[in-house]
Amino acid sequence: MNKQSVLVLGYVWPEPNSSAAGSHLLSQLKLFLKQGWQVTFASPAQLGEHKIDLNQFGIEQVPIKINCSSFDEFLLELSPTIVLFDRFMLEEQFGWRVAKHCPTALRILDTEDLHSLRNARHQALKQQTKVDLNSEMAKREIAAIYRCDLSLIISDYELELLKNYYGVPQHLLIHSPFMLEATNVTAPDDTFNVRQHFISIGNFRHQPNWDAVLWLKQKIWPLIRKQLPQAELHIYGAYPPPKATQLHNPKQGFLVNGWASDAKKVMQHARVCLAPLRFGAGIKGKLAEA
């Protein structure tokens, strides 16, 4: 039997230490490797500052271009038996090319989370209206699910929503939550009495995280400091923009520290993780870490 060849088309290059999505994607890549499959990762995105080197795992990394025939040539040469699209936008961009040039390849959509649900909740918050599940983005995302042979759904809530509200057949969906290794869960080195301060963590490029930081600054942290005047809130996250770093205020105990190379270690030294997410979708890596 010929060896399975998996092509993963990434919306961004994996950054497992920057986001839960990056960590989850790396788990899937490692799972493919455990099957003895040949794995190639390709992306049209720019290289991120915290991108992991996939070569160390034996995964070939290939930059690709959008709207370019060079991708067709790349497909024909690689001839993958499985193609995984990282988020529905990548399926929209490259799915028809895969269907044309690799018609027998199994096409899998990794939704990461339902982007349309996250966006609908965001709009509902901004406009103070009900969540609209019938947006144009929802139609696009559902269409991408129907075009693929299988879609990976990270939360059981989204799985039920797709089946019961949108009427997506069960055979097109599979529940694929975080792949957490229970053997890696160890007791923290420091006891609660030794640990200090509050923490909040999340990639600043993810809109729900930035909204949470603003809400902490404007509403929540002043109430906490009123009762705990010496308390400190340490905020970590990749790619903090100037508007975020400008919130840094030691006098208020509001400390914007930027990227943390080891989220677990940072968590172990804190007493409380604050995650006031007012909208979003999927499941939250920061809660699993905490």
Rank of each mutant, 00 (worst) to 15 (best):
M1P: 00
M1G: 14
K3R: 15
S5F: 00
G10H: 03
G10N: 11
E15P: 04
N17D: 15
N17L: 12
S19F: 00
G22D: 00
S23V: 06
L25E: 10
L25R: 06
L26H: 04
L26Y: 04
Q28N: 08
L31R: 11
W37V: 01
S43R: 04
S43D: 07
P44Y: 10
P44C: 12
L47I: 14
D53A: 14
D53C: 04
F57W: 13
G58T: 12
E60A: 15
V62T: 14
K65E: 13
K65D: 08
I66S: 04
N67M: 13
S69E: 10
D72P: 01
L75W: 00
L75K: 02
L76P: 01
S79R: 04
L84W: 01
L84A: 10
D86M: 01
R87Y: 02
F88S: 13
F94K: 05
K100I: 06
R107V: 05
L114D: 00
A120L: 07
A120G: 11
R121S: 14
Q123G: 01
Q127P: 00
Q127N: 15
V131Y: 02
L133V: 00
N134R: 11
N134Q: 14
I145T: 06
I154H: 03
L161C: 06
K163D: 05
Y165H: 13
Q170H: 12
L173H: 05
I174C: 10
H175I: 04
H175F: 14
P177G: 07
L180S: 12
E181P: 02
E181S: 15
E181N: 15
A182I: 09
V185Q: 09
A187M: 13
D189L: 10
D189F: 05
N193L: 09
V194I: 11
H197F: 12
H197C: 07
S200D: 04
R205F: 12
H206W: 10
N209Q: 03
W210R: 10
W210Y: 14
D211P: 03
V213C: 00
W215P: 02
L216K: 01
K217E: 12
K217L: 06
Q218C: 03
K219R: 06
W221V: 09
L223V: 08
R225S: 11
P229Q: 10
P229I: 07
P229W: 13
H234Q: 11
I235P: 03
G237Q: 02
A238G: 06
Y239F: 10
Y239C: 07
P240N: 06
Q246F: 09
L247A: 08
N249M: 08
P250M: 11
G253S: 09
L255F: 07
S261Q: 10
S261L: 14
K265D: 07
M267K: 00
Q268G: 09
R271D: 08
F279W: 03
G282F: 12
I283R: 06
K286F: 06
